[in-house]
Nucleic acid binder design. Structure first.
Length: 211
DNA sequence: TTGCCGATTACCT
DNA sequence: GGTAATCGGCAAC
């Protein structure tokens, strides 16, 4: 597989290509595990988007776990199986991309075995070279040109995938999820996982820092 | 078929 | 702190 293409700026080609060639693209087996474990392990990994031979990427620093059907904040709550949620019922390691608020796309990674509709929402990246602001789920998809065309695709090159570049781990902070008010006990569950970073969608509270 | 509202963002005071 | 923008999904009618 060839990652670098003629049109990719030389300065950002070689290092990532080496990492990809080294076999560090995360496969379905990574995602076919406990969703909270997957969410935590995703922090620090590189999310890579390839468009017409140009590579865009950012480092995952903020994600949330959605544990449907029990999770009242999940689209798959109560086992809802609709055209929209269908991808989450499928195999692990696929992208679940949905449209919200009339203008934003959100990217999730499907976890767990077929029939278990769980996923990890990508909320923020530390942007790579030339990549725009990624502090929020709608901004991540905008910066990486992700929309409905990628709903259901496997997280494998080309197009969209996750790479482990063996960066040193950082401290993981855990907080309630964003935007899930009105879901009872689920709105208090600590299912948002992040590194402390200026690129978070929300700053960590003093309480979260202290924990 | 209708109507509400959302796993958000940006811009206002 | 508050709210407009903007439209597909979904449940109710």
């Amino acid at each position: 597989m060839r990652i670098a293409r003629k049109s990719a700026p030389a300065g950002r080609r070689a290092p990532l290509a080496e990492r990809v060639a080294a076999g560090n693209v995360l496969g379905p087996e990574f995602f076919d595990r406990d969703t909270v474990t997957v969410a935590r392990d995703l922090l620090g990994k590189l999310l890579v988007r390839e468009i017409n031979g140009v590579l865009l990427w950012g480092r995952l620093i903020e994600v949330e776990a959605y544990l449907g059907p029990d999770d009242l904040a999940a689209h798959s709550r109560g086992g809802r199986r609709t055209p929209r949620t269908e991808v989450m019922f499928g195999a692990a390691g696929n992208a679940y991309v949905y449209f919200t608020y009339g203008m934003h796309w959100c990217l999730n990674f499907v976890t767990r075995e077929e029939g278990v509709p769980q996923a990890v929402l990508v909320r923020a990246l530390e942007p790579g070279p030339g990549v725009g602001r990624c502090a929020g789920p709608g901004l991540v998809t905008r910066a990486l040109s992700i929309d409905r065309a990628l709903n259901g695709v496997a997280l494998q090159p080309p197009e969209l995938y996750v790479v482990d570049d063996a960066e040193p781990r950082r401290r993981i902070f855990v907080t309630p999820r964003i935007g899930v008010q009105g879901t009872g006990r689920w709105e208090k569950r600590l299912l948002r996982f992040c590194y402390d970073s200026p690129h978070l969608s929300r700053k960590l509270t003093k309480a979260a820092r202290g924990g």
